[in-house]
Amino acid sequence: MAFTKKIMPALAAVACLGVSPALAEGTVTVLSPGGTVFAGGKAALWGPAGEALGIAVKEETTDEGLPAVRLQVGAGNVTADIVFLADYEGELGGREGILEPLDYSVIDRSKFLPGTTSDYCVGVYGYATVMAWNTKTYSGEQPKTWQDFFDVEKFPGRRAMRSNAETQIEAALLGDGVPAAELYDVMATDEGLERALNKIRALKPHIAVWWSSGAQHGQFMKDGEIDMTTGWNGRFEFARKEGGAVDYTFNQGILATDCLAVPKGAPNKDLAMKMIAEMSNARSQAEMSKYTNYGPVIPEAFSIGVIDSEAAKVLPTNPEYSDGLIIQNIGWWLDNNDRVKAMYEDMMTE
């Protein structure tokens, strides 16, 4: 099983090999997820960047970025130069020593939203964990904050939360009145964690479902199975577009990113750094957002006239939402993941 899990993405990647004609500078291989990210990446990110620099781009796709890098580095046969990772994977890969430190003398870090770049991975788009509610159930006053999410007297109804502690601990503490600025200080203490778990314990009689995938919570909201849930902004936007009685708020949304990294021992490491620097600009990220419901992590992307105000409404990194947006502390999760998830599962099965 171990091997299938690691080899399948690699095989899938090989199957999807696509090569653009090489001209001058050399070639870099980009390993990205498929679907909308691939379409947007080709049109807005590596496509234009490769043309501008005269670098040919070889494309491979996988939905398991980090396992693919582990496999390549472990086998001593690294073919990918640039890889798309979740920020959590970027941090983990850096600690495992399978990623090159990024060269921030080439890549301009200053234009990014704070907290969306790290030593090993530079943000490319962001998505948020937000709360969504059924607009028929709550036709009068709409919930606005995580405190409303946990307030079953003011907003009675069926709730759903994630069957995985990640982002739910943050939501619970915000729901218990912890200010965003102190969130990770409170989470650093055992009392803080217990406080978060107790908040969810108190809500448990109203939690009808513990969701485990984005498809699931999107469907629950569209079907009216659940009155209020935590989940990912793109799924709720989709449910709303499909005609579901759904609304959501970016207020106190918890932002995570996908990011670009360079595997340790990448064959064209220096070109990869140049490519990442070239792709990391406001226009590219703005164009990219047209393909996905993910938001640019370079704030300037919203002010160059590429994203109109209507389209900007559904993007979590819209500067208009920035006061309420919380950037997830990925390092904290990496340090505490196992312990917190075990505590969460104990609470869930009580």
């Binding site: 099983m1 899990k5 069957s163 995985n164 009808a208 479902v209 513990w210 969701w211 485990s212 599962e345 869930m348 099965t349």
Partner: peptide, 16 residues
């Protein structure tokens, strides 16, 4: 089960 019924197989999958 909707997360309210946790089976061993689900835990194994999550561990992996």
């Amino acid at each position: 089960g909707g997360g309210n019924v946790q089976a061993i197989s689900m835990r194994i999958a999550r561990s992996l």
